Amino acid sequence: MSLCALLFAIVTWQVIAEGPLRDADERLGPWITGSRLPDGAAEFLADLGGVAVAAPVLAAVAAWTAWRGRLDGVFRWWLAPVTAVVAMAAVPALVIPLKVLVDRTGPAGMDGSGYYPSGHTATAMVAYGGAALLLLPHLRGTYARRELVIACALLNFGVGLGLVRRGYHWPLDVVAGWLLFGMVLQVMVIVIARYGRGSAEECGPAQE
């Protein structure tokens, strides 16, 4: 978490101060926009970060894991789903003030300011990352868990790529979303581990 916080602080400082990292970012952006990824595919990937798509995915997974946990008699079965929902609520609470504070203009063709950090990236990070964290305890075997993590990472990368390819965001807007809400997901893991699993172990024998 400390590394994510440090990198986020550096990136934010460079964007606000219009430093060398921002200059490199604004050279990289048009190069990605001009890549061969088809417009339709890029738009589809970008749309996966929208609230209308990502939030229902997390809501469905949270509801299922809550039902499954209660059915299985898991101690504090509600903790992980509720934590995931709170993490999603943190997206506008953190992103909107940062957009106002940084006040970064968008790529060519985009009006106004407030593009840093990317809200779509943040939404995707919490929705798909949170869903993966909720599902991991229900998967058996290292292979299934590894594939889920890989799929989640590729999905989030695809959303970021689509946003930059379509010219909706600069690359650093996307990176900032990953870093900031990577920290939020780490907090989610800590909360669940501290207040959920430990207590479940203590209560386990009584449930048998």
Rank of each mutant, 00 (worst) to 15 (best):
L37V: 08
P38L: 01
Q14E: 14
I10T: 08
P20G: 09
Q14L: 07
V11M: 01
T12E: 00
G29T: 11
P30K: 11
I16A: 09
A24E: 09
G34Q: 06
D25H: 09
G19H: 08
P30T: 09
R22E: 14
E18C: 09
A17C: 13
V15T: 07
L21P: 02
D39A: 06
A24D: 08
L28D: 02
G34L: 07
P30V: 11
I32Q: 03
I32P: 01
T33Q: 15
G34Y: 07
R22T: 14
R27C: 03
V11K: 01
V11F: 01
R27K: 14
L21V: 12
I16K: 10
G19E: 06
L21S: 06
V15I: 15
D25K: 05
Q14P: 03
D23T: 13
E18Q: 15
Q14R: 02
E26C: 11
Q14T: 09
R36E: 05
A24N: 10
A17Y: 14
E26F: 11
W13V: 02
L28F: 07
R36G: 06
W31M: 14
W13K: 04
D25F: 10
R27Y: 02
T12W: 03
T33K: 13
R22F: 12
Q14V: 04
D25C: 08
L37G: 00
T33I: 15
I32V: 14
A24F: 08
L28H: 04
I16V: 15
L21E: 03
P20C: 07
G19L: 08
E18D: 14
L21A: 09
G19W: 06
A24P: 02
P38M: 02
L37H: 00
G29A: 13
G34W: 09
V15S: 05
I16Q: 07
L21R: 08
T12P: 07
A17M: 14
P20E: 10
P30L: 13
E18S: 15
E26S: 13
V15G: 02
I10E: 01
I10K: 01
V15F: 08
V11W: 01
L21K: 06
I16W: 10
T12C: 08
P20F: 07
D25N: 13
P38Y: 03
E18M: 14
S35N: 09
G29N: 07
L28Q: 03
D39W: 07
R22G: 05
D39F: 04
L28I: 12
P30G: 11
G34D: 08
D39T: 00
W13M: 08
I16T: 12
L21W: 10
V15M: 05
E18N: 12
T33A: 15
P38Q: 02
R27V: 10
W31Q: 14
G19C: 07
